[in-house]
């Protein structure tokens, strides 16, 4: 009877130890990169769409055709790089000096008030004041900087529609030549205008933003003076890059790059985007099952 015990023990040890061994010979990677990608380790590219149909990547290992002129329409998937649970991908809140943002004193105060549930300053689930846990809109620029997933872009002569997976929200970028409003009433998603600066690059400026939103999951703050620049560059038929720059002189002493050429891959026209909606009743059920008991300090 002892033999089966030993065999089962050995099998167990080997099965668990083998991934450890693989991890130890993996190439060096920065600590932040490990954290940003480990939550989705083993994540294959989207293999089924929201309709449950298998998806084949547009590129399929073949060289892409050249980019069409003045056209970013399509369904685009940024893969794991869009999730950004530690904050803006190009400047995650990980304690590294090069990722320290140039806060003004007011910006530092506002940051200190934010209690995120992820990253270096994370608090217990029940203690966070992240606006998204009450299903408030993410707003801009957080739509680009947290849970950015498959995004549908539709163009008309006057405007570009961007339709996001997270929250199933959409926004409009006006491309009819209008200027940004001078003294706008603040909105969750602000006011956006876009101009083609060359055949393949649409630059979008956004202002008039509601101060209640966070810039990213790490709780970076902004004021109503925030101005966002999004640079959509179509590299070729199947690839799009997004660069996002934050400019808010009340909170930051200089502009900073939050996304640096995040790459999206074009999905087939038949691709159906999944629903990913913040439902207050589902969130309440989650808190009842996990969030609140996990935060209960009475048992520590």
């Amino acid at each position: 009877m002892l033999k089966p015990l030993i065999v089962s023990g050995l099998v167990l040890v080997l099965s668990i130890a083998s991934p450890l061994a693989r991890a130890q010979v993996a190439p060096p990677q920065s600590a932040t990169a490990k954290v940003q990608t480990a939550a989705t380790a083993g994540h294959a590219p989207l293999d089924h769409d929201g309709w449950g149909r298998p998806v084949t990547a547009s590129t399929n290992g073949q060289k892409s055709a050249p980019a069409p002129r003045h056209d970013i329409s399509g369904t685009w998937d940024p893969g794991d790089g869009g999730i950004q649970q530690l904050g803006a991908r190009a400047m995650p809140e990980d304690g590294r000096p090069e990722h320290r943002l140039p806060y003004t004193p007011l910006g530092q105060e506002a940051l200190n008030r934010a209690k995120p549930s992820n990253g270096l300053r994370s608090v217990l689930p029940a203690e966070t004041n992240d606006p998204v846990v009450t299903c408030d809109p993410q707003g801009m620029p957080r739509e680009d900087l947290y849970e950015l997933r498959a995004t549908q872009i539709i163009q008309t002569p006057e405007k570009v529609f961007l339709m996001y997976t997270f929250g199933k929200v959409w926004r409009v970028v006006w491309t009819d030549g209008r200027e940004l409003p001078k003294d706008p009433e603040p909105r969750w998603y602000g006011y956006s205008v876009g101009k083609w600066v060359d055949d393949y690059t649409l630059v979008v400026q956004t202002t008039g933003l509601d101060e209640r939103t966070w810039i990213d999951r790490a709780g970076r703050p902004h004021s109503s003076d925030l101005r966002i620049e999004e640079r959509y560059h179509r590299v070729d038929q199947n690839h799009l890059e997004l660069t996002v720059t934050i400019d808010d002189p009340q909170m930051y002493t200089k502009p900073w790059v939050a996304l640096d050429k995040l790459q999206f891959e074009l999905q087939p026209p038949s691709f159906d985007v999944r629903e990913m909606i913040c439902s207050p009743s589902e969130f309440a059920e989650y808190n009842k099952l996990i969030g609140n008991p996990a935060s209960d300090k009475g048992h520590q």
């Binding site: 023990g9 167990l12 668990i16 130890a17 939550a39 994370s122 689930p125 996990a294």
Partner: peptide, 26 residues
């Protein structure tokens, strides 16, 4: 056998892993 199996699981899985959870509650 079940006791042995459970002990094996707990002891082996307690080894430090390369991945660590980011939630403050855990």
């Amino acid at each position: 056998f079940l006791v042995f199996f459970t002990l094996m699981c707990v002891s082996v899985l307690s080894l430090p892993l390369s991945a660590h959870h980011g939630n403050a509650a855990y």
